[in-house]
Design a protein around this nucleic acid. Structure first.
Lengths: 196, 196
DNA sequence: TGGCTACCATACGGTTGAGTATGTAACCCG
DNA sequence: CGGGTTACATACTCAACCGTATGGTAGCCA
């Protein structure tokens, strides 16, 4: 996946640039997304870039939208197929927990929220996910207001965890510790089975 | 506290620059911390700055350390004075929730974690606070491992909430909604009184 | 096979912001 | 009251990037 030796010819498309941008963002953050740097990375020069995009801003925008679109059809649909609402939470949490790769970009974007362009994207994504969680909690028997609060709490815990363990290097969890933590989350945040 | 009219003479100290930097960070983020911009803000020029600091990096470093030191002796000590361990959590959560002013800088730093200098500071602060929470949960009767997980969860929820509601403008909570959310957090995250 | 087009290189202009060099006004102090 | 220190102004240099202008090359297609 690296460039290795100079490939005889490269011929890039706009999508190649967007993917390259996302990779660079995941590795070094949004601030590191510079036209010439990315061009070097892809084995070409600026001249190429400005054929595909009118501006650097346009590239960032396109990359973010590409990421947003891609991450949309995710685990969510499969979760809803589980009949027992209470059994959805363990499954959801475990799946999300073990798909750490797609979270790389999300974490990178989280720590780049001072760049104005990423805010609306993250806002939309977070909003949709929280609405999904709220529905799940409602179907598990929580009152609408309580369900909203619980969804907020759950998603905040998710976001905060990414920050604390990806970005900050807080004492690296081992696999076992991480799994145990996830189970603790499940136990704490899954609603009790209703008594009526 | 504002400049207002040009004060006849200003004569700044290094601490003034650090405070100004923190204010600017809280308002516009770490990325907006530029020497000349800050100088204009303080009513002087770059020439002044480079007398007090060797580099921009040095200013940021000093400001962060100043903030870290200042925020240290916080609510924490007062909380520990509450005799009943279980009654500490409501008090802690409510206090933190209503002191939103000091969290401005923290939130600004959270959304600037792609600047390498802020990572160690945030790392230390988060680490200390999580250790405090862990101790609290232990004294409330949780097993050490469980207490650690619960502390992680709690602090992650705190961090995530700041991200979602300060930085992203997710549908602005009203005061009532916010208070209700805090109470929900308390109910969900406070350990049950032990039965033995 | 000539030419059109997609893709890229090279060279330049413009801006922004960091850091330096150096002069200068106010203030303290003996 | 003259000289040294503190605090600042002004006027530079330098590097990083963004964006533009323009020319070059490979491949496809009539």
């Amino acid at each position: 996946m690296n460039d290795g030796a100079k490939n005889e010819r490269v011929r890039l498309s706009a999508e190649d640039w967007e993917d390259g941008a996302l990779a660079l963002i995941a590795e070094q953050g949004v601030g590191a997304l510079a036209v010439e740097a990315l061009a070097r990375r892809l084995g070409v020069t600026k001249g190429s870039f400005y054929w595909h995009f009118r501006t650097r801003e346009a590239l960032l925008q396109a990359s973010l939208e590409r990421w947003e679109e891609y991450g949309e059809r995710e685990v969510l649909a499969e979760i809803e197929r589980i009949p027992d609402p209470l059994k959805r939470f363990p499954e959801l949490f475990r799946r999300v927990a073990h798909e750490l790769q797609p979270h790389r970009v999300y974490a990178a974007l989280l720590k780049a929220l001072d760049h104005p362009q990423v805010v609306p994207v993250m806002s939309r994504v977070s909003q949709r996910r929280m609405e999904f969680l709220t529905r799940l909690y409602q179907e598990a028997g929580l009152e609408p207001v309580v369900a909203l609060h619980r969804a907020r709490l759950t998603y905040a815990a998710y976001v905060g965890f990414l920050q604390l363990n990806f970005t900050l290097g807080l004492p690296r969890l081992s696999h076992e510790e991480f799994d145990a933590y996830v189970e603790h989350m499940i136990a704490t945040l899954t609603p009790a089975r209703s008594t009526d």
